[in-house]
Amino acid sequence: MIGYIVRRLLLVALVACGVTTLLFVLARLSGDPAELLSPPEAPPEVVEATRIRLGLDAPLAVQYAKALASSFTLDFGQSFAFHQPAAQMVFQRLAPSLWIVVPSIVLSVLLSFAIGVAAALRPSRLSGRLLMAGTFLTGSVPYFWLALLLVLLFAVNLGWLPATGGEGFTSLVIPVTALTVAAVSTSARLARGQLLDSFGEGYVLTARSKGVAPWRVLLGHALPGALPPMLAWLGIEFSFLFSALLVLEPLLGYNGLGALLIRSVANQDFPLVQASVFCMAMLITLVNIGMDVIVRLVDPRLRTKAAT
C-alpha cells in the first residue's frame, strides 16, 4: 500500500514536468509579452529593456530549466502584469475557487446518491423513470447558461442574491447551484447503474437470504459493492468542476483562480499562467490519486493484487 502511494507520487512529479513543458512551449509560441507590455509606439530599445527585465532575453534552454526548477521550488517568479510573486497570487485566489468547488462536490455527491438510490429501488416504476428523465434534462442544460438564468431571476429581477462575487456566502449560491445541477446528472445515473448491478450480485441475494433488514442490505451490502466506480468518478468530476471555473468565474465576476488564469493568458503573463495552471493540474492529480488510494482501501481485492 505504501509502495503504491510512493509510486503514484512519483507520477505526480512526472505530471509536473509534463505540464511545465507543455506550458513553456505554448507560451513561447503565443507571441512576445515584451511588446504587449510596452507602449504601442515604444522604440525597440524600450521593448528590449522590458524583455531583459522580464528575463526573456536568456537562451530558451536556460528559461526552460528555470521553468522546470520552479515546479519544484514553487517559485514561479514575478507576475509580468501585477509585479507580485505569481505563486502568492495564485495561492490567494485558490481559496475563493475552492469555496465554489468543494460545496458543489459535497452537494452533488449527496444529491446524486439520494437520487441514484431512489431510482435504483424502483427502476421500472414511473417515479424511478421520472427521476432518470430529470437527470437527463438537467444534464443537458449548460451550467453557464443556467448560471446566467439564475442571475437574471434571483439577482436582477428579485434582488435576493448578489449578481457578482465578493459579497460573502450569498455570492456562492448561484455558482454552486449551477455546478451542482451540472454535476448531479451524470453521477446520479452512475450511482443508479452501479447500485442496480450490485442488486443483481450473489452477495446481495445472500444478504437477503440471511434475513438482513432491507436498509442494511442496501447500505451494508449493495452500496459497498457499488462504491469503487463511484469514487473513481468523483476524481473525474473534480477536474470537470475546476475547468468549469474558467468559464463561470469571469462570467459571474468572481475573483477566483479561474478568472485569474483567463486574465493572465490574455496578458501573456507567463509566470502567472504557469503558476495557476500548475496549481490546478497538481490539485486535480492529487485528488485523483487520493481517490485511487481510497478505492484501494475500500476494496481488499485490489490491495492483494498490488502486493503481489
Binding site: 441475494l205 445472500t206 437470504s209 440471511k210 434475513g211 451490502h221 476494496d299 481485492r301
Partner: peptide, 19 residues
C-alpha cells in the same frame, strides 16, 4: 429466512461479499 430456513448457493465466491 434469518433463523429457520437457510440457503447455500452454487458459487461460494459469488455468495460471499468480496469486500
Amino acid at each position: 429466512r434469518a433463523g429457520r430456513a437457510r440457503l447455500v448457493f452454487q458459487d461460494p465466491w459469488r455468495a460471499l461479499h468480496p469486500m
